[in-house]
Structure formats: structure tokens, C-alpha cells
Design a protein around this nucleic acid. Structure first.
Lengths: 252, 252
DNA sequence: CTCAGCATTCCACGATATGGGACAGGTCCA
DNA sequence: TGGACCTGTCCCATATCGTGGAATGCTGAG
């Protein structure tokens, strides 16, 4: 039904995705003449979609394939832009800092930098948690389309600790406060012993596309420090990331 | 000189890597008739290389592309399998532990877990170093095809410290010892002040596909401890990773 | 209701991919 | 050393297969 040679090229790539292989081996596996496989590999090599492990050696998937999916690997470019500002924020608050994006009804933690403090909040990179229990989630929800917000609040909201707010009306009011203040604090609603504060990152058109946060053990964060000052620090860090994105708008 | 339709397909994919687009837009950008682009997109969609953001909407890069590069995101599956065993090894030796794979004439460090000791060997994750100066490299070379070994030893071998062994015959003999013992030690041949020990990880067919190692500052590692016992600890950890891979053979 | 813009489908044409086989380079074993 | 047996690339006559212009169908705006 489709274009034959394209389908064949992807059969070859699929074989290579499970490890390097030579022309003959691939030809047997995908049931094609060697000459055809050789020609396909030459073409793919010219594109950069495959490469030889060593000159004259077996073929493997090429770096160009990474560029093609970079938009999919959630926010690779975003992480690169945000990294230095995560470090700054970590130094400013003395606690771990991280960024996250919205993934459906969950907040997806992309990256985290840690302080060198021996007592640390574990690294949540790669995990996803419901929006209403973490400040990053509240931030992302606060600037989501109203229709999304309403849909989210109509669902049954899970409670994680004794302090978790699950009342839809209470959360809706909270979202308003977050929009006013520009940041969100959550005190032990996701996990007992962890406090966290977050602010929104915007793309070059002003849409909120991610959140940046800092979090630490409840016994020392924020402790005697002003939640407003810490909030401002996070907002400032988010602003710097936003500014960077504006000057280099290549992020998904 | 390559297969036209494959090259065209990748032109389309390249356009999509910078964000979703419709048929007309793509057609203009890559300078092809709409009908051709439409046909290419249908084919790619059948494969899963592209998908529609919404039914009837613009196209974006598809999830299948992720599977193709999973081998490139350096050994994601391998790292996942090995991680718990790296932790165990780190606890057993009290020093940092890591895994690495062969990349041409270099050993590529994929991942490292660190002890909580304040004095630490820096994290080499992501870097590549020549095979003959680190035990992981010796291990990978020891079980490489004899032709590769000979080719490698014929090259001019770089010296990193006063202790680096660069004599091909000496290295060849050393590889024999590594194969006998099942592990390799290197004392300050790569960097003064670092000692390291490594053992091979095999795939489900018995081929050596990676190495696991532990390394620490020379003044305390191995110190008074038996190099044989530490070697056995690394071999045991490697064996556990190998066993895991056997029961779950999805790694590159 | 018409028109503009979009994506898909159709089909005759011939450019283009195809694959069998020849070839060259390498490794292994006797 | 020779030759058997791999390997991957190249060649070229063949017709398959992709091509692209035009027609069709769809949707939404004015």
C-alpha cells in the first residue's frame, strides 16, 4: 500500500535498532537481496540515519536519527536551556531544583540538579505525578486552558498525605492565587517531609510550557526563610529560562 | 546516488523534527508535489514513523522513531538492567561502580554510581577513552574478535602516565591473563591516583557486550584488600547483570 | 451559497528501484 | 602458500514501482 523502498528502509532500521549488523545478516533477516540491502544502507548512510561502527565494519543506527526524534524526547532542548538556571536556583535556595512539563493529567519531571547536601530529596527525574499534589503541577494547571482545568477537577483526585487538598473548589481557588502570585508552594501534600515551590516557564509566545521548582526536606525548607522571597527566586529563575527560550526558540 | 524515495522520506521527517506540519506546508518546504508528500506520509504513518496530532490534523514524528534510536540513547535498556547491580557492587567495594561498552577503538562509559565518600573519583559517564589504559577496555578487548585485537595492537598506543603499558606484546599477554582470571586490574595507567577493576557482561548468547567496573583513589583502593576478592566481586556483579539480560533479552 | 484551502485518490507514463550475478578484498584452515 | 569461504559493493538489462498533474472530496470562512 505504501512506498516499497521506504518500508524496506525502515525494516532495515528496525533490525539495526536491536544492535549493529552487517549487510548479509540484515538481508537474511528482512528477506531481501544483499544488493538491495547494500543500496538501502548506502542511502541511509548518506543521510546519516545509519553509520558504520568502524570503517568497513557493521552498520548501526546513526546520529541523525537522534535529531529527528529530539522533538519527542520530552524537551531535550528545554533541558539544555534550563540547566544553567537550575544550577543557579539550586545555589540560591540551597536545595535541589528541577524542571517539569505537562503530560496529559500528570506532571513529568524532566531533570533535577541536586545540592551537595548529604540529606537530599530523592531524584524524581523521569517520574510522573498528579497535578494537584505538587506545585509544578499546580503551576502547569493554573495556566492550562480553562476547559482542561475544569475537566481535571471533575475527576476523582487522589490523596497522598493527610495534608493533600482534593476539594475541587479549594484547588480552583488556589489556582487563582497561583496566577496572582506567580508561584506555588506545596507543603507535604505529595510526600510527608517534602516542601516544594514552583513557577512557570513560558515559550516565545508567552504560553506556559514547563515549570521550574525547588524542593527540600520539610524540617529545613523553607524553615525561617520567607516563602515569598523563595517564591521570587523561583520566579526569577523561570524568567531567565523564558528569556533564553525567547532568544533561541527551538523548543517543542 | 541513493534511493530517491528514501531520501525524500527523510527530507519529510527532517521537516517534521522541528514541529508538526501539514501536507501542503511540507510539500513547499521540501519542494515536492503534494501528492508525493501525501503518499510518503501515508507510508510513514503505516510504519509509525509519523502520526497525526489529531485525526485529520497535521503530522508529527511518531513513537516508532523512538524505538529505533533506543539503542543509541546509550544503552538505555542495558543501564536499566545493570543499575541495581551497580549499586550492589558499589556497596560491596565501597567505591564508585560503572558500566561501559565498546565504541570502535574506545571504551564508552555509560553510567556510574558513586559511593557517598567525600573523596570521589570524578564521574566519567559519557566519556570515551582508549581500550588499553582502563580495565574495562582490556576486558572488552580480551573478548573481542582476534582480528580486532590484532588491529588495535598494531596502532600507535598512547601513554597516559608513567605506568601505562603500551608494548603490544605485553598487552597481548595481559589479555590472555584477563581471559583466564575473568577480570582485569589497572593501577594508575590511565590517571595517576586511580585504580580500577573490571569484568565482562555477556548477552543471552554469551557474547561480551559490556563491562562493569569499580574504581577508587589509589591511596585507599584496594589498599590492604585482596585484589582477587575484589575481582571476584566484580565478576559476580557482572554475572548477575548477565543473568538478568538472559531472562530479559531486549538489550542492544 | 460560493470560494479558498486543505488532503486524498486516480491513473498513464517512464524514470527509477530492483536483484541476479560478477567482482574484489579479507579471514581462516590445511 | 593456496584455495575455500566469507564478506560487501558494483554493474546493468528489466519491468516494477514511484511519480506528479489533475480530478475529487472535505471543511470552514465570508
Amino acid at each position: 500500500m505504501g512506498v516499497q523502498s521506504i518500508e524496506r528502509a525502515f525494516s532495515v532500521l528496525r533490525r539495526l535498532s536491536s544492535g549493529p549488523a552487517g549487510v548479509t545478516e540484515i538481508a537474511e533477516r528482512v528477506d531481501l537481496p544483499k544488493s538491495t540491502v547494500s543500496r538501502i544502507l548506502s542511502t541511509l548512510e548518506g543521510i546519516g540515519a545509519v553509520a558504520q561502527t568502524s570503517p568497513g565494519g557493521p552498520y548501526r543506527i546513526g546520529e541523525a536519527m537522534l535529531d529527528l526524534v529530539s522533538a519527542l524526547l520530552p524537551g531535550r532542548g528545554l533541558i539544555d536551556s534550563a540547566y544553567p538556571h537550575l544550577l543557579e536556583l539550586m545555589e540560591a535556595t540551597g536545595e535541589a531544583a528541577g524542571i517539569s512539563v505537562l503530560d496529559g493529567d500528570l506532571v513529568h519531571y524532566l531533570e533535577q540538579v541536586e545540592s551537595n547536601n548529604p540529606v537530599q530529596v530523592r531524584n524524581w527525574s523521569g517520574t510522573r505525578v498528579p497535578l494537584h499534589v505538587v506545585p509544578s503541577g499546580l503551576v502547569l494547571l493554573a495556566w492550562a486552558p480553562p476547559a482542561h482545568q475544569r475537566a481535571y477537577l471533575q475527576r476523582t483526585l487522589e490523596s497522598f498525605t493527610a495534608k493533600t487538598v482534593v476539594n475541587p473548589a479549594a484547588i480552583a481557588q488556589r489556582l487563582g492565587e497561583v496566577r496572582e502570585q506567580g508561584y506555588a508552594w506545596v507543603f507535604e501534600e505529595f510526600s510527608e517531609g517534602i516542601n516544594s515551590v514552583a513557577a512557570p516557564i513560558r515559550d516565545s509566545t508567552g504560553n506556559v510550557i514547563a515549570a521550574i521548582h525547588s524542593h527540600g526536606p520539610a524540617y529545613r525548607f523553607p524553615l525561617h526563610r520567607s516563602t515569598a522571597l523563595l517564591g521570587d527566586a523561583v520566579v526569577a529563575a523561570a524568567g531567565r529560562v523564558t528569556a533564553d527560550l525567547r532568544s533561541n526558540p527551538t523548543v517543542p
